[in-house]
Structure formats: C-alpha cells, structure tokens
C-alpha cells in the first residue's frame, strides 16, 4: 500500500474517477481527519472531570460551601440531560446517528455526574442507608433508560455492570486479578443465573427487533459472567458433573451466538471455557504425571491450531 495505490486502482478501472478523487485526497494526506484524536480528548476530559469531582465530594463531605457545589453539579447534570433531550430525535428501535459530535459525551458526562450527585444525597441524608443495594438498582434502571432513550451503547455497558453489582458480581478484570470477582461465597450460582437470564433477555429483545445493535454488548457481558461463574463453581464444588455440563451448554449457546453475531470473540470464550473444563476432567483421571501433561499440551493445543487453520474458511467468515 503506497500513495500511488489509488492511482493504480483507478488506472486498472477498479474504482471510478469520482471515487479516486475522494480517496486520493485522504491517502495523499491533503485532507487529514482528527476525528479519533478529538474524541479521545473529549473522553479523557469527561473522565478526568468526573473523577476529580467524585474525589472532591468524597473528601469534603459536610463542609461549608459544599452544598453549593453539589447544587452546581446537580444543575450541570440537568443541563447535560436538557441538552440531550433537546437534540435527540424520537425513540427508535434502530441505531441513531448522534445529532451533534459531542452528543454521546454530554450524555456520558451527565450520567457520571448523576452517580456522584446521587451518591452524595444518599450519604448526606441517609437515604436508603441500610439498603445500599436499592440505590445501585436505581442507578442501573436510570442507566438502562438513558442507554435506550439516547441510543448509547457505552451507557448500556455501565447499566449492565451496575445491575451485576446489585447482585454483588463485579465485572472488572482488575478485581478478578485481586481475587475479588465475587464479594461473598457461593456467588457463582448467582453469576450463572444472572448470566443465563441476561442472555434470555438479550435474545428476546433481539428477536423483537429492539435495538439489535445492543445485542453484542449484552451477550458479551452475560457469556463472560456465566463462564467465569461456572468455572469458579467447577473448582469450588464437589458436583463436578453439573458444572462441566453447564460449561458445555454455555459453549453450545456461545457457538450459536458467535455465528449469529458473526463474532469470533464468543467462540473464543467458548474455546477457553470448554478447554478448562475438559482439562479439569482429564486432570481428575490422570493425576500429575508430568510427561503426560507435556504430551497433552502438544496434542490439545497443536490439534486446536490445526483445527482452526484447517477450517479457516469457516472461521474467517466471522
């Protein structure tokens, strides 16, 4: 690929003159798009601002002048949503094009400020003090509404994480790393049920044609939560067979969803989980004979690589 390539394609008659003019303008560097740079700056700005506000509120709770800043934030939140409601087109089940370039970020800013204000009110006035869970549920419900109303898939992912955390499931690799995937014991049962129910909802919504472009995000979360729950259960419980069956069942579901959404990612989750479950079964049967395990890793992984490449036309469609 060089700067002369568009000319070459044009000379060969593969693209029309009009197309060549447009493409060449970009490839030659005469017209430069700073779309992604500006979006990253906006995103970073929203993130820094809301983080700073969150810390500020937390550190200065109850001080003089504090009420004023909370009121200012509440007003800012309202301004964000006022802006959003003013510019948004009517609700549609289809994907909407953002009416202005900053629209999505205004909605994001408003939503994040909403959490800060809500958290403050709850703390200061002791609302729902013994039921912290309820406030998480309110956050989740509010985010779902925002996600659907303003067609924002980023807020949808926040809504799903909030809903998951209502059930005490933490959806963040950072927390899994420190071993905090589940805040209490036996929560993997919750995770499995949560993942499965969310999958049902996602599929029903998709079948009814409600925001089909949200399906990927739903499935991504629920497949991941389901598998992690089932694998933790497999290592923790005595009823191995049940969890192995659950994982294999999940694999079948992930396989069909991978085909439906044309996403290799779901298939990857299925491969990993299926491999872990199978290896666990083999480990029970074989014990720790080291030579066998070298052979096993060569045979299983080598075989897997061979399988992927052999049926490449099947996989590359996704």
């Amino acid at each position: 690929m060089t700067r002369e390539t568009p000319k070459e394609l044009f000379d060969k008659g593969l693209i029309t003159e009009d197309q060549f003019q447009k493409i060449d303008l970009i490839i030659s560097g005469k017209l430069v798009s700073v779309f992604y740079e500006l979006r990253s700056l906006l995103y970073l700005g929203v993130m820094l601002f809301t983080t700073g506000v969150g810390i500020l509120i937390y550190q200065n709770i109850g001080e003089f002048g504090h009420i004023l800043s909370i009121i200012a934030l509440a007003i800012l939140t309202l301004v964000c949503f006022w802006y959003a409601f003013k510019h948004v087109a009517g609700y549609s089940n289809e994907a909407l094009k953002a009416p202005t370039p900053y629209f999505d970020y205004v909605v994001l800013l408003g939503s994040l400020l909403f959490i800060s204000v809500q958290g403050y009110l709850q703390f200061q006035f002791g609302w729902l003090n013994d039921k912290l869970g309820v406030s998480t549920l309110i956050t989740a419900a509010f985010f779902f509404y925002i996600a659907y109303r303003f067609d924002n898939v980023g807020i949808l992912s926040l809504a799903i994480t909030a809903l998951a955390s209502f059930w005490s499931i933490s959806v963040s690799p950072q927390k899994w790393y420190s071993g905090n995937f589940f805040e209490g014991s036996h929560l993997y049962t919750t995770a499995i049920i949560f993942g499965a129910s969310l999958a049902v909802i996602a599929v029903v919504f998709d079948k009814r044609g409600i925001k089909k472009h949200f399906t990927f995000t739903y499935l991504n979360f629920c497949i991941l939560i389901f598998f992690v729950g089932a694998i933790v259960g497999l290592f923790d419980e005595k009823i191995t067979a049940l969890y192995v069956l659950l994982i294999y069942g999940g694999c079948v579901f992930a396989y069909y969803m991978a085909r439906y959404e044309k996403s290799f990612l779901f298939l990857l989750y299925a491969f990993i989980s299926g491999y872990v479950a199978t290896t666990y079964l083999v480990a029970i049967a074989m014990g720790d004979e080291i030579g066998f395990w070298f052979l096993y890793s060569i045979a299983s992984c080598g075989g897997f690589v061979y399988f992927l490449i052999k049926y490449k036309s099947f996989f590359t469609q996704k």
């Binding site: 809301t50 926040l158 933490s170």
Partner: peptide, 14 residues
C-alpha cells in the same frame, strides 16, 4: 463501550 465500562464508574458493589 468496553473501554467506558472498564474505566468509568459502574463497578461499585452493592
């Protein structure tokens, strides 16, 4: 969407 869910809030636990 993934980046937003990982860097922003929403991971608060109940």
């Amino acid at each position: 969407a993934f980046i937003i869910s990982q860097t922003m809030g929403g991971n608060q636990t109940a």
